[in-house]
Write a protein that binds this DNA or RNA. Structure first.
Lengths: 222, 222
DNA sequence: CATGTATTAAGTCAAGTGATTGACTTAGAC
DNA sequence: GTCTAAGTCAATCACTTGACTTAATACATG
């Protein structure tokens, strides 16, 4: 007779805690993407994560903002890893397209790695748009050394652009990246046709567009 | 002795109803932009609109989705008006920049007309990102004849682009427009510096970027 | 003038929320 | 084997929410 049905695997206390943390994270990510971050209560997250009680989220993460931050951290860390590699491998530091590729591909590659269905893109787009959640993601993003590296690389390539326009177009690139991957993710979830067959191809399309956007001539006045 | 303090003006029943409808609309727009659509309850909207009754929103509009639709309609109608004029006045129908201008300027011009502070841009960005609210705005937007006119005009100019890429870049233009004006509106509300001094200049920057984006060469593979 | 009706006010209700609490289980330290 | 603390669970708290009910107000119509 077995002592308990737990003997087959030996989940240490820390392991079990980590496991439920992961369960909560993925459940929350899915629910947030599907129904909206604010429309989902901590209770629903706990239940969807298979936790019988409603305290699970509060116990492991605290407030919902903390949960959002944890989800963001998890993905951003993996994206940062890919991005660091790509930045390190960059060939010609005067090539605008190379820097833009470093901006786009780590994200799409991460989504491709996670495998369908993904929820992070829709989650991220929502968080960036919500006035109360946005600062969380902005804060977590700013702490990326590879991103500031890319920024300075782009600045060097585009030194003839006015500072304001550079800042403006960097904003545009961020918005485009965040919301276009969310759009594609939505289409995949809805079985709606997508203009590109894979995340890789979608990234190509984005890079094409961003290169054009960044190199576009600047109208002085009017 | 006056009969009542209502004698000074003579608001007919319909006028009063319309007035409170407007009060509710603007109050809701502001609260939604500031705190998020889902974070604001119909009660809060009613109170902010100066209605002692907490069901005022429900009475005049129905559900919150209906309220969102009403806010969207109000602004989209005015934007549509400007856009119709601009499309009618278009000079060279083979000029990509002209069509893109018709896409961008009506929106910025409307925001400039409304006058600071504006809330519609942040409101719109949120609605477009929320999975449950998004269909409302999409639906309301599709009913714009001038937009489909612009679309076909652009298609004619860019007939050498593959269909998929054209669709993709139209999506990009939409996302960029929606979220960049929201970004600027946020900055204005926060007293954060903006890359452009006026809505007109911001539109110029957007048009510049979109022209570059749309005319960018297409990478065939990889 | 009288009656009906649209609008606003005020109060109530069940359902659902985050947070707190204390009891229970169990892994690891001694 | 006992003890401790991490992790889980169930119950409860005060509070907010949308929906509903009822009453008061004031305009419109005959």
């Amino acid at each position: 007779m077995v002592m308990m049905n737990k003997v087959d695997d030996n989940p240490s206390r820390a392991e079990r805690a980590h496991a439920t943390r992961e369960l909560i994270l993925t459940a929350a990510e899915r629910l947030f993407a599907e129904h909206g971050v604010l429309a989902v209560s901590n209770r629903q997250v706990s239940e969807a994560a298979g936790q019988g009680n409603n305290t699970a989220v509060g116990y492991h993460f605290g407030t919902k903002a903390d949960l959002v931050r944890a989800i963001a951290r998890k993905h951003l860390a993996q994206i940062e890893e890919i991005r660091q590699r790509m930045v390190a491998d960059i060939g010609d530091p005067a090539d605008v397209r190379a820097w833009i590729t470093c901006l786009v591909r780590p994200v799409t590659e991460h989504l491709a790695e996670v495998g369908s269905p993904t929820w992070f893109a829709r989650f991220g787009a929502q968080v960036m748009t919500d006035p109360t959640l946005r600062p969380i993601l902005v804060e977590e993003t700013q702490s990326s050394p590879s991103l500031v590296r890319i920024l300075s690389g782009l600045n060097a390539c585009l030194s003839d652009l006015p500072d304001d326009v550079r800042a403006e177009r960097y904003d545009m690139a961020r918005q485009l990246l965040v919301h276009m991957i969310a759009e594609r993710e939505r289409a995949l979830a809805d079985n709606t046709p997508t203009p590109r067959a894979s995340w890789h191809d979608a990234a190509t399309g984005l890079v094409d567009a961003l290169v054009g956007l960044w190199l576009a001539p600047v109208t002085n006045d009017s």
